[in-house]
Design a protein around this nucleic acid. Structure first.
Lengths: 137, 137
DNA sequence: CTAGTACCTGACGTTAACGTCAACGTCAAT
DNA sequence: ATTGACGTTGACGTTAACGTCAGGTACTAG
């Protein structure tokens, strides 16, 4: 023996479905769905999926993108841009374009939401007033 | 003088599909959909729909509700509450409950959106910086 | 009688992002 | 040999709020 406790030949980390699921709080179905959409490209270890660091990173980006409200299609596009060549000016520019549009939409959404919140609050105040009258009568 | 210009026997107004559609900017399909969901109850004039003031008012409420992000199901519930007896304390209370929950959700949504906006802005700034470096090199 | 216009009723299609089976494969442990 | 844990591939189901036909009716104008 070469005297070492051989625990893992590849500590270089590769993950199983459930590992990633637990870590990111998603379902296996979701991972498979992302793969089917070309967002992830796990290898196989005799039928079973094996995700490497790159996939892990991509998954993180996917979930972050979702939080931003990007659709999976948009996320896919952005991931592809990252892949091709991160340093190309045109790619970065494109990324900024897409992100910029999303940002604009998010701001609009937020503003509309703010207006709606205020309106609803007003409505509720009115009803609340009515209710008080009823009670004190 | 009551010798007035008699223009319409029923100025008491009843509307046709297209009239309401134009006024509120919705499609006939939408009106029929709302009816199928029990949100509107137009009468018939030999197959054709006739909407009265009450329906018109309900439609207005429906659309307002949508702006607030209520689902049609929730809107239906609220409309029913209005119908049964608008003055009953319990109904008003229920209305406030439902609206309160919605308001809470809207605020959460807005807050999350705000965070996401800031994050995305940060990301963009970073990428933007990268881009500048590339250009000035 | 014939257009034309407005309207009607089904009923299937759409979109996103998975959920939910069913049926089967792999591998370590018993 | 068998049980379990874990995983796999289809493939159809779900939800909301309508869109989009196809094919028929009702009534007015000419």
């Amino acid at each position: 023996m070469d005297g070492s406790i051989i625990v893992q030949t590849d500590m270089d980390s590769t993950f199983t479905v459930t590992q990633l699921c637990k870590e990111f709080g998603v379902t296996p179905r979701a991972l498979r769905f992302y793969e089917s959409k070309g967002l992830l490209h796990p290898g196989r270890e005799s039928t079973r999926r094996r995700f490497d660091q790159r996939d892990r990173a991509r998954l993180a980006l996917i979930l972050r993108g979702k939080r931003f409200g990007f659709s999976l299609a948009e996320i896919g596009e952005l991931l592809d841009l990252y892949d091709t060549d991160n340093s190309q000016v045109s790619q970065l520019t494109r990324t900024l374009e897409v992100a910029g549009r999303r940002l604009e939409m998010m701001r609009m959404q937020r503003d509309e939401l703010t207006v709606a919140i205020e309106e609803l609050q007003t409505q509720m105040d009115i009803v609340s007033g009515l209710l008080d009258e009823k009670k004190t009568s």
